[in-house]
Amino acid sequence: MESHHVEEPTQFDLLRGAKAGNFSAFQQLLNILQPRVYGLAWRILQQQQDAEDATQQTFLAMIEHIADFREESSIATWAMKIASNNALKILRKRRGLNVISLSQIQSEDQYSDVPTPDFIAPWAKPADELAQEAEVQAELDTALSQLDDKYRLVFILRDVEGLSVRETAEALELTESTVKVRLLRARLALRERLTRKFGNALQVVKTTHNHS
């Protein structure tokens, strides 16, 4: 047990304060969580107004339930789960009733016919260098928006936001094995597209597709 004196309150302190009804503590927590919640909503919804609605609904829901938050996960994970739920609701409403339920098991949720990588080449520049380039962000958004919702959501929660497979499964009400298959498909689809864009065309590797 350590008892160090720090000026800055920890997230734990802030949570204690918020649970005790201290609005200022809650605001400070939100300042920490806001970029991730808004970013998650934006990535899922790809539209500002909807991202704002999802963000607001998320924080309102947190006020509603903060007293009962049992701290089985970090507050950030809790916020991400609520945010993905709210974003999903908006997405479903937007897509209308003919949208297939995300949690419905589908044939693509098996490993059997996962597509084989086609364009294989090392990237011409490392990711951290590419990230500095203005047009790359637009390319990333486009690539993400062209992914099917069910793959996109899993990729955003697991790989971009860093939730565990289990947390992602809980947030999206999927089984862990469905999360894993969808994550693989998402990763492969994005890899394929981005490698065609950023791969070094002079170092393309040919594979022999002999699946013995």
Binding site: W123, A127, L190, R191
Partner: peptide, 23 residues
């Protein structure tokens, strides 16, 4: 090796992306 590296780069790139600014 290249496919695995491509995937790691893909994830890094998404993680390094600009944070979306709230208006």
């Amino acid at each position: 090796q290249i496919v695995v590296d491509n995937i790691r780069q893909t994830i890094s790139l998404y993680r390094a992306g600009e944070p979306y600014e709230m208006p």
